[in-house]
């Protein structure tokens, strides 16, 4: 089986401090993979290595079939990335943001024109097409960010705490968008602090102090830790 992501003993040290300690895991194509851990557990560092932004100290990993040491530029072309903190330019309109990001990935002007029209219709946000992003409600912004992050049809999309603060209906519309792309074969790699969110994933890993301490489907993890919810699993694993 070919994996979207495979990591073997992946390690990152900063001086004497080991931020990521020999993590080994595989993510299947089309899987929704949750990447969990407390603040400071090493999630961000691990994700930066997988994104080709930080060179590992040891171990190996392939992302979308490319090597994290030698083919970082290739990786960047074949992944999408969305974070809650920053994804869109606030002083541009949705249309302009689509043109900007699409342009970076090398889309032609005619492609971008057609694509921005399509995306805005698909999201049902015609009313906001020419409004500055800073004046658009958060829920719309997040759906737009996600659409833009996958506009170049990456093999894998990385979502860094994507749904903080949105209302429960919008949050579910967002997860339906995730289900849809996963169903079409895109791999989704998502980090979150909110354990109810973890329950949407096919499988989740939980990092503690630089190591992956648990990895399975939410259902199996709940059985393994004799817990009612993923929140309880997390607390059992991270609280000494």
């Amino acid at each position: 089986m070919e994996y979207a992501i495979s990591a073997n003993g992946l390690t990152k040290k900063f001086g004497a401090f080991t931020a990521v300690n020999a993590i080994t895991f595989n993510v299947k194509k089309g899987e929704i993979f949750g990447f969990l851990g407390a603040n400071g557990a090493g999630k961000t560092t691990a994700m930066r290595m997988l994104n080709g932004l930080s060179r590992p100290t040891a171990g190996e990993a392939q992302v979308a079939g490319y090597d994290v040491y030698r083919e970082t530029e290739r990786i960047k072309q074949h992944i999408g990335y969305m974070s809650q903190k920053f994804s869109l330019y606030e002083d541009l309109t949705p249309k302009e943001n689509i043109h900007f990001y699409g342009g970076i990935y090398g889309g032609s002007l005619s492609f971008l024109k057609q694509k921005s029209k399509e995306l805005i219709t698909e999201l049902g946000m015609e009313a906001y097409a020419n409004t500055l992003v800073k004046n658009i409600p958060l829920g719309w912004k997040q759906k737009l960010s996600f659409s833009i992050a996958i506009m170049h049809q990456p093999a894998i999309v990385f979502l860094d705490e994507p749904t903080g603060g949105v209302d429960p209906i919008t949050r579910r519309q967002f997860w339906e968008m995730i289900y849809k792309v996963a169903n079409e074969g895109m791999t989704v790699f998502v980090t979150t602090h909110y354990m109810d969110e973890a329950e949407y994933c096919d499988r989740v890993s939980i990092m503690v102090d630089g190591r992956i301490e648990a990895l399975d489907s939410p259902g199996n993890l709940k059985k393994q830790f004799k817990a009612e919810t993923m929140n309880d699993v997390f607390l059992k694993l991270t609280r000494p």
């Binding site: 429960p168 209906i169 579910r172 997860w175 339906e176 289900y179 849809k180 996963a182 169903n183 109810d196 973890a198 329950e199 949407y200 939410p218 259902g219 993923m230």
Partner: peptide, 24 residues
Amino acid sequence: DDMYRLINDLRTFDFTHTVFPFGE
């Protein structure tokens, strides 16, 4: 086994009021 299709199919069921994904 197929959650995405499940959501869409439940939406067209005769007695449905609402359908929302809720984790697993």
